[in-house]
Design a protein around this nucleic acid. Structure first.
Length: 804
DNA sequence: AGCACGCCGACT
DNA sequence: GTCGGCGTGCTC
């Protein structure tokens, strides 16, 4: 008897242990690793979905095995690679394998559980049962069933007057349409046509249609009816006469309405062709090498990606390209589709679940050979991958911030190893981790220092907002920025105004001298905790009162810092009444497609000024933009995160790259209260290497990534005392395995210490080498699982992107 | 979630 | 001695 090891999807209980089920004789060949199955679970009649991980000859389980009820998939939805990957991912991210599997697959493969209530035999006429069912044979039990009703149902159930039926629903369905096709060739149709009566006008028209459009068959019947005015009875008659037949076709729900012109590979610059040939060597030799392309904005990295993808395809391999969600705008998608046509599948958050499933199927079937997508596209079911590319490698959005907390770069590294193919990381401003790995020789560095066509770098000016001349001005624009905005408007060019809004209002800065209140122990800025009315450090928990005079210069101009986009928009409208301003921030892009619409509008020069937050800094290319103004460069600098300088540098460098990309010279104005800060000065010079050296020195001094690994563990509970108690227990557990070389910070409350009425505490572990830590954390995770029922939640974040 | 099991108090 | 109430733990 065969046995299947199944990872089950029990919504209320999570474990990484597989459960074993008997494979009924009849399902012997269908139950294979990677298929989804329906199985019974628990003592009741509950049915759930599970993933078959393994098929074995016998079981070690002492009890009696339940049989598999049903196989959901005809062919496996998980390849061997994906099954292996899920084990690794669960281990690496301290999450449950079931949630890894669900993350790897399109959402529609997540089971939908339904419960139906029906009268038990003999109780069909019971008055209470009647009242519940209200003349229906059965009713569905949904989430919004009221508590009283639940009680009533539970009571009837106890009395055995009703039965509850469990149904596992498969939501994964392809869109099928009725279409027509024919077995006859053109000559045969002509032959048949000549036999028609001359007054059979509709049939004649249909035969002509079939002859003309023979190559395009099958064609959807609805399309024929609508576009060519051929009615259904006409088709039916032709079917009767064996001219055509009706079939079901699977239709791709594709939102990509754009069909960009086919483009060909342009002539490469020396640097580009150097890069391409280095990477292609690795593709040819099936080396799982990682390359880091450090290329200034405008150096033509995208073309390098496209040509390596070409190479992989030429060798009958596939390619995976990840870009940040924000870059998945038509501009980037067009370039890839333009080169590779319908071999491309695009995966982004804007897809409906049906569309996403269709793209997934196209990849799985091998129809799509190139995948472009955001973070989760790293799990695309490509076979035989020839190259993996991650553009804007430093972007924080590659890390998922809920379970499983994976970093797409890590998953990509794993897959590259599996497929023995190169991984290409590209950025103008690489993350410190990656750049440091390149330094150590773990990654191979490829430098691209020249802009295409020798476009000069934009002219960057830093405006010192501490200067009275600038700060005395009403509003947020310095005279220099105002003058330049006027000039752009007069010349009918375009400007981008960036408002750096992160960390809004939560830290305190002196408007006189730029002083920011920092933690005496941790060298990060203190955050204002509203519920405490005090300044607090996230790292060590240090707190102090809110200052009213600047500790540095004794000025009273110290206070919360931050400006909203609406406010700036108002100022722009007042000062430049004739300018057309487009605002792009979380508020104006909430609607589906709004983001692309704003970009298109600005690209068509239907506005003069694009005002926005970080989202306007990346991947956009507007030839008429000659001015970029950064209203407040400091806000990212002052958030209490050790990556603050890195983020600021990256943002400023990126946004500066938006100016003057075509033949017009670009101008960038950065307003700041910290004109001497290295992150700002280096960004102004677009000097990544100098920044890197300085930042590495500071990270080394304060013991952060990439010199140390960090793991963040957070605990929450409804009751603050309980949460704190649990976190101290946790700390003790960790202390028992940690050596003296590691640092254990906390427990301290998180930035928003209370979310959804739960109190959050966090512990940070900084370490270089702790052989027992991983095992201990896995233990803690499974030990605390039983506690979740009591309201505890615990989350372990391996290498957090931000600590707040 | 739902069911069995077991511990304890109330009652025959 | 036995019935049943609910807290606890397990589910292949």
């Amino acid at each position: 008897m065969s046995v299947a090891a199944v990872i089950v999807d029990v919504p209320t209980m999570q474990t990484n242990r597989p459960f074993e089920y008997e494979i009924p004789e009849a399902l012997n060949d269908v139950v294979v690793p990677g298929v989804r199955v329906e199985v019974g679970f628990g003592r009741g009649k509950r049915k759930i979905q599970g993933f078959v991980m393994e098929v074995k000859d016998s079981s070690d389980f002492s009890g009696k095995l339940k049989p598999i009820i049903r196989v959901i998939d005809v062919k496996p939805v998980l390849s061997k690679e994906m099954i292996d990957l899920s084990y690794w991912l669960a281990d690496r991210t301290y999450s449950f394998q079931i949630s890894c599997l669900q993350t790897m697959l399109p959402n529609v493969m997540r089971a939908k559980y339904k419960q139906f209530i029906e009268a038990a035999p003999g109780f069909e006429d019971d008055s209470q049962v009647q009242a519940l069912l209200q003349n229906h044979l059965f009713v569905e039990l949904t989430n919004d069933t009221t508590d009283e009703k639940i009680k009533e149902i539970a009571q009837l159930k106890r009395q055995n007057k009703i039965n509850i039926e469990y149904v596992v629903e498969n939501q994964a369905n392809s869109l099928t349409r009725q279409a027509i096709t024919t077995d006859l060739n053109v000559n045969e149709i002509s032959e048949k046509k000549s036999q028609l009566r001359s007054n059979a006008k509709a049939q004649l028209k249909l035969y002509d249609f079939l002859i003309v459009h023979h190559d395009e068959l099958p064609i959807e019947s609805s399309e024929i009816e609508k576009k060519f005015n051929i009615t259904r009875p006409t088709l039916k008659t032709a079917e009767k006469n064996n001219i055509l037949k009706f079939i079901e076709i699977t239709k791709r729900r594709t939102p990509v309405g754009i069909h960009p012109e086919q483009t060909n590979a342009p002539v490469l610059t020396d640097e580009q062709s150097q890069a391409v040939s280095t990477i292609n060597d690795s593709i040819d030799n099936h080396q799982d090498k990682t390359f880091l392309i450090e290329g200034v904005t405008g150096s033509g990295k995208t073309e390098v990606y496209l040509q390596t993808i070409s190479r992989a395809i030429a060798q009958d391999e596939t390619a995976l390209m990840l870009v940040p969600e924000i870059s998945l705008t038509p501009q980037m998608v067009n370039r890839v589709i333009g080169r590779f046509g319908n071999q491309v599948a695009v995966l982004h958050s804007g897809l409906s679940s049906g569309e996403r499933y269709d793209e997934w199927t196209r990849i799985e079937d091998g129809v799509a050979k190139v995948v472009v997508g955001a973070r989760s596209a790293v799990f695309a079911p490509l076979k035989n991958i020839g190259v993996i590319i991650i553009d804007e490698e430093h972007e924080g959005s590659y890390k998922q911030d809920d379970n499983p907390r994976y970093h797409a770069r890590d998953v990509a590294t794993w897959r590259a190893k599996f497929h023995k193919c190169p991984l290409v990381l590209g950025s103008a401003t690489p993350s410190l981790e990656s750049r440091a790995r390149a330094e150590k020789g773990v990654y191979q560095m490829i430098n691209m220092t020249k802009r295409i066509n020798d476009h000069p770098l934009p002219h960057v000016q830093i405006v010192d907002m501490r200067n009275s001349e600038n700060s005395a001005v009403k509003g947020d624009f310095s005279p220099l920025l105002q003058d330049n905005l006027w000039r752009v408007l007069k010349r009918k060019e375009q400007a981008i105004v960036l408002l750096n809004r992160r960390g809004y209002s939560s830290f305190i800065m002196c408007r006189e001298c730029g002083f920011v209140l920092k933690c005496p122990n941790c060298d990060v800025s203190l955050t204002y905790h509203k519920n405490l009315g005090r300044m607090k450090c996230h790292y060590c928990g240090h707190e102090e009162p809110v200052p009213h005079v600047c500790p540095n210069c004794k000025s009273k101009k110290i206070g919360f810092y931050g400006t909203g986009t609406e406010n700036i928009e108002k100022q722009l409208n007042e000062q430049f009444p004739d300018a057309r301003v487009l605002r792009m921030d979380v508020d104006t892009t909430r609607k589906k497609g709004a983001h692309a619409a704003i970009i298109e509008k600005f690209g068509n020069h239907e506005a003069d000024i694009l005002l926005g937050t970080q989202m306007i800094a990346k991947g956009l290319d507007f030839p008429d933009v000659t001015l970029v103004g950064v209203v407040n460069a400091d806000t990212t600098l002052s958030i209490s995160d050790y990556r603050a300088s890195e983020r600021t540098f990256q943002l400023l460098t990126q946004v500066s790259g938006r100016a003057g990309r075509a033949d017009k010279e670009g101008h960038v104005i950065i307003q700041t209260y910290n004109p001497d800060h290295y992150a700002i000065k280096d960004a102004a010079k677009q000097d990544y290497e100098t920044f890197f050296k300085q930042e590495m020195y500071l990270r080394h001094q304060s013991g952060y990534t990439p010199y140390y690994f960090t793991t963040l563990i957070s605990v929450s509970h409804q009751d603050e005392g309980q949460a704190l108690k649990q976190s101290y227990w946790l700390k003790k557990q960790l202390q028992s395995v940690l050596s003296d070389n590691s640092v254990l910070l906390g427990p301290s409350p998180t930035m928003i210490s209370r979310k959804q009425n739960k109190y959050f505490y966090q512990i940070i572990v900084k370490y270089k080498q702790e052989p027992n830590l991983h095992q201990k954390l896995l233990e803690i995770l499974s030990d605390t699982q039983a506690e979740t029922k009591k309201g505890f939640t615990i989350a372990i974040d391996n290498e957090p992107q931000h600590i707040d």
